[in-house]
Amino acid sequence: MIIHHPILGPRDAQEFVYLGDASLIDRPDGMTAGVEVFHDYLYNRTNPAGEHQELWYHEQGDRSWLVVTRNTVTHEITKVELARDVARSRGRTK
């Protein structure tokens, strides 16, 4: 596969490490959320046959974490964003 890195352009997926669903960005606050909430965060994922947002790490590249929108059936990639930007847009701060 080829991932169109937002900064570096097309790069072979071999350079990346896959993590999983981009919902991993939405980590609950450990001081307020309990075990149940964390359990959902960590283990309960949707498993769509179709469009899926997922985290890829450009380990053999610029070390950017990316949010890749990929169709799990066709492997078509329709969007690639810096995970940092996605995290900020979802309200993550410090």
Binding site: R27, Y57, A83
Partner: peptide
């Protein structure tokens, strides 16, 4: 890097 970029990007 995951923690820095994805969880606490403003640090």
């Amino acid at each position: 890097e995951f923690c820095r970029q994805c969880l606490w990007p403003e640090m």
